[in-house]
Nucleic acid binder design. Structure first.
Length: 481
RNA sequence: CGGGACGUGGCGCAGCCUGGUAGCGCACCUGCUUUGGGAGCAGGGGGUCGCGAGUUCAAAUCUCGCCGUCCCGACCA
């Protein structure tokens, strides 16, 4: 003991802790071009789990996957005034290709409203073609001034949904459904990260949208991270791309469109939302390895045999299990590594356990006490016989406990305030809630001078407000990533 | 793009002030001994000191420029 900590403690330097963790847990690193990132296998496996969970929920709303090109004619971007204005500072533009200058530069997609709009216009003729519900999984490029692995990179992976509807009500209902039934549900129930849902103010709205809905999560340093957004685009894109249909009366009508996305930024949210001084903490549902069976030591092969049987029993019980039988590496080292990587459950089996007919089970979520010291209660002995069958239940419990803990921490760091000064004070360590009527755009600007922004506007009791002009609408303000 | 800190084997650092042929810890390889919370000993491999100019007999060290990283702002999923 009393070794130097593996990671810079969060309280000492949170950004450094994040960097340390990315490296030591073999998650990701910077790419050779500024702002790009390399996602290593352990992190990519987590991303793939996120993708499959989100994808299933998207499909449940009726949307279908498709794929549109990486390159977009520059002229497309220019059709929607606010859209270009918002994106032009961060566009990567291909001017030369095949050894020649291109007649029309091709923009590397920063998002695909424009190309998809062009094709929607082609595919939609009648009200019978509506709604058109599309989604694509892709990479996008937004040249960033201040990149940070996972949180803000010049190229990132995401999902972007694009839909067209006959009526405004249907479009906004769909945008809301994506935010709540897909994003919020996924974040809360899979990532175990509680989110505040709300509407963006005009200042924070997506370029070209009438309305932007968002999920905001709190990181362990009290800063906010926007984890997902869903936009009502009104008829802004329909108008310029001529996305229209004939209604049942034969009259030509413009569609109402939406777009919505979540990205690899969620990886950053997962890391900073749950990670502690020992490393990553993965909710079982996204953990690639849910349980690792560690052979503490072994002289005659009997412990390894038993461990292998245990691993098989875990797999049979539906647990994503792995065997760690590297007995030539010191046990403590391996234990630390699995903690760093956030594996939810460790089953440690040594000669002593075997003799007693038991296995030592350690849960990662409770490894540290609230005061930051090791929590002995995170480890317990279980009878070896039947231990595997207890793990699925334990994983569920861990999933639930992590959500409860994250929710409690967030709520404890969220305070109701009445004025700008109080809000600034509160947002040094968390979120502040202030009546929107009291804050207003004036107050919003004032907060912005201190790098505090309105993350979203919420209904009085939380969640999406019917209208931001409603009495009782609350502004959730924070420092943010 | 403004303000600050920093670039030396994979990672973390010392050396720089007072120029003189590059060092430590961890990691890696080999062997032996170990093993219930980051193992020990012995041996070994790996670096044009971010890049480019300049000063000098001689530059990691001094000067100038550039690039990159991290932090704090303006922008953002």
């Amino acid at each position: 003991m009393a070794k130097a900590p593996v990671l810079t403690p969060q309280a000492e330097d949170f950004p450094r802790w994040y960097q340390d963790l990315l490296n030591k847990a073999e998650l990701a690193e910077n790419g050779p071009v500024r702002g790009t990132m390399v996602i290593r296998p352990y992190a990519y496996a987590i991303w793939e789990r996120m993708v499959s969970e989100v994808d299933a929920r998207i499909k449940a709303t009726g949307a279908e996957n498709a794929y549109f090109p990486l390159f977009i004619p520059e002229s497309y971007l220019h059709r929607e005034a606010e859209h270009v204005e918002g994106f032009s500072p961060e566009l990567a533009v291909v001017t030369h290709a095949g050894g020649k200058e291109l007649e029309e530069p091709a923009v590397v997609r920063p998002t695909s409203e424009t190309v998809i709009g062009e094709y929607m216009a082609k595919w939609i003729q009648s009200y019978r073609d509506l709604p058109l519900l599309l989604n694509q999984w892709s990479n996008v490029v937004r040249w960033e001034l201040r990149p940070r692995v996972f949180l803000r990179t010049s190229e990132f992976l995401w999902q972007e949904g694009h839909t067209a509807h006959a009526t405004e009500a249907e479009a906004s209902e769909y945008a809301r459904r994506i935010l709540e039934d897909v994003y919020e549900d996924f974040m809360v129930n899979v990532l175990a990260i509680p989110v505040f849902t709300g509407v963006k103010t005009a200042a924070e709205r997506f370029a070209g949208a009438d309305d932007t809905l968002a999920c905001e999560a709190m990181m362990r340093d009290g800063k906010a991270l926007q984890m997902g957004t869903s936009h009502s685009l009104g008829q802004n894109f329909s108008r310029v791309f001529d996305i229209s249909y004939s209604d049942p009366e034969g009259a030509q009508q413009l569609c109402w469109t939406t777009s919505w996305g979540v990205s690899t930024r969620m990886m950053g949210g997962l890391i900073m939302g749950h990670g502690d001084d020992l490393g990553l903490r993965l909710p079982p549902k996204v953990a690639e390895v849910q349980a690792v069976v560690t052979v503490v030591r072994d002289s005659d092969g009997s412990v390894t045999d038993a461990a292998r049987r245990l691993e098989q029993e875990l797999c049979d019980a539906g647990v994503r299990a792995r065997l760690d039988d590297r007995v030539d590496t010191p046990f403590g080292r391996r234990a630390t590594d699995w903690e760093l990587k956030g594996v939810p459950v460790r089953l440690e089996l040594g000669p002593r356990d075997l003799e007693e007919g038991q296995v030592t089970v350690a849960r990662r979520d409770l490894a540290l006490d609230s005061d930051g010291s090791r929590n002995p209660a995170s480890k317990a002995a279980l009878p070896l016989d039947g231990a595997a069958r207890a793990v699925p239940g334990l994983l569920e419990e861990i999933q639930a406990t992590m959500l409860e803990a994250a929710t409690a921490a967030r709520d404890a760091a969220t305070v109701d305030v009445d004025g700008v000064a109080e809000a600034l004070e509160a947002t040094r360590s968390g979120f502040a809630r202030i009546p929107w009527k009291r804050l207003g755009t004036e107050g919003e600007r004032e907060l912005a001078e201190s790098a505090v922004t309105v993350r979203c506007l919420q209904a009085e009791g939380g969640g999406l407000p019917a209208s931001i002009d409603d009495e009782g609408v609350v502004a959730l303000v924070a420092r943010s990533y």
